[in-house]
């Protein structure tokens, strides 16, 4: 067993049935990453088995941009870290305009915004993946990881809800699916049961005269967590002047990202104009229940819901009309 003496990375491999476990110790820095076992299974079943063995003390690793930080800063503990990046199914991105998008849980952000067709098919998702971190983060961080981390302020989750995406979960009892808006349970908590992993997200195929947009508000222009975020998806009628269907989702204004059901339903049949967007924003504000913290006061965040809903609706509509 390798032990930490602050002299750099020490790695030891040995075979443990069907995958490799490695014990890692941090280098000479002042930040102590505790020892844990590392596994990189190649099938979903192996991952479930590894997860089941360690129970609560196992953490999943995709890009690692949340979990490594959390482990380093003592925000969580892990006996085992299970890397899902060698499981083919979790790394697949498949898109066709007929079927829609199937997005493996470990696919990094850059693969989404660099995909030529996705920016037309799912613009809100692309908006969000472009603003998460910098290039290094976007090269590692996955949308599935962003969802599983279940931050109320996660940038991609409102866009998944607006796009009506579905989570596909595998576990010891088999597979199940549910809408994204039912996936997050509380800040940092999701509905995955022991032994379960998120395998993929699927998005319905893009509809004609439909588009979407995501915006967040941050006090700076980079390096920040949303004080509030809104994703809007709209479908217009043939004239492009009336809304046929809409889905609005909000981030950072409730314990989880939320679907703004009433505002979305109200928009059906409304004409495309500023008054409509302002009114939808006012209705959306009703479901916001933010906290006061260093990222914004409660009142301010509720106010931002109105502004961001209005702005994303206008942008989504504009994009839909341009189609």
């Amino acid at each position: 067993m390798a032990t930490g003496n602050g002299s750099g990375w020490q790695v030891r491999h040995w075979t443990h049935r069907f995958f490799t476990i490695t014990t890692i110790t941090t280098g000479a820095g002042a930040f102590a990453l505790q020892n844990f076992q590392y596994a990189a299974p190649t099938t979903v079943d192996d991952a479930i088995q590894a997860l089941s063995e360690h129970g609560e003390q196992a953490k999943m690793l995709a890009g690692g941009t949340d979990i490594i930080v959390q482990l380093r800063e003592g925000m969580c503990e892990a006996d085992a870290v299970i890397d899902i990046k060698r499981i083919e199914e979790l790394m697949q991105l498949e898109y066709s305009s007929r079927v829609g998008l199937q997005l493996g849980a470990g696919v990094p952000c850059w693969k989404i915004y660099q995909h030529a067709e996705l920016s037309v098919a799912y613009p809100a998702l692309v908006d969000a993946t472009r603003i998460i971190g910098g290039w290094q983060i976007q090269s590692r961080a996955s949308v599935g990881g962003n969802l599983c981390n279940a931050s109320p302020a996660a940038d991609t989750i409102p866009t998944l809800i607006a796009h009506n995406a579905v989570c596909h979960i595998a576990g010891p009892q088999g597979r199940r699916s549910l809408p994204v808006e039912q996936f997050c349970a509380a800040p940092g908590r999701n509905i995955l049961q022991p032994g379960e992993i998120l395998v993929a997200l699927t998005f319905p195929p893009p509809l004609p005269k439909a588009s979407s947009a995501y915006e967040r508000f941050i006090p700076r222009n980079e390096m920040d967590i949303a004080a509030a975020g809104a994703a809007s998806w709209v479908q217009l009628d043939d004239t492009g002047e009336r809304i046929v269907k809409a889905r609005i989702a909000l981030g950072a204004v409730a314990p989880t990202p939320i679907f703004a059901q009433e505002a979305s339903s109200w928009l059906v049949g409304q004409p495309v104009n500023d008054e409509t967007f302002v009114e939808a924003g006012e209705i959306a504000k009703k479901v916001a229940s933010p906290i006061d913290d260093m990222r914004g006061t409660r009142e301010y965040r509720v106010h931002l819901v109105g502004v961001l809903t209005k702005r994303t609706l206008a942008k989504a509509t504009h994009r839909a009309q341009a189609e």
Binding site: P219, R220, N221, E222, M223, D224, I225, D293, M294, R295
Partner: peptide, 16 residues
């Protein structure tokens, strides 16, 4: 102090 990190102690970045 609730914001003892460069994430929430907001010094300007080159974008600002």
């Amino acid at each position: 102090m609730k914001n003892a990190s460069f994430l929430d102690y907001r010094m300007p970045t080159s974008y600002d």
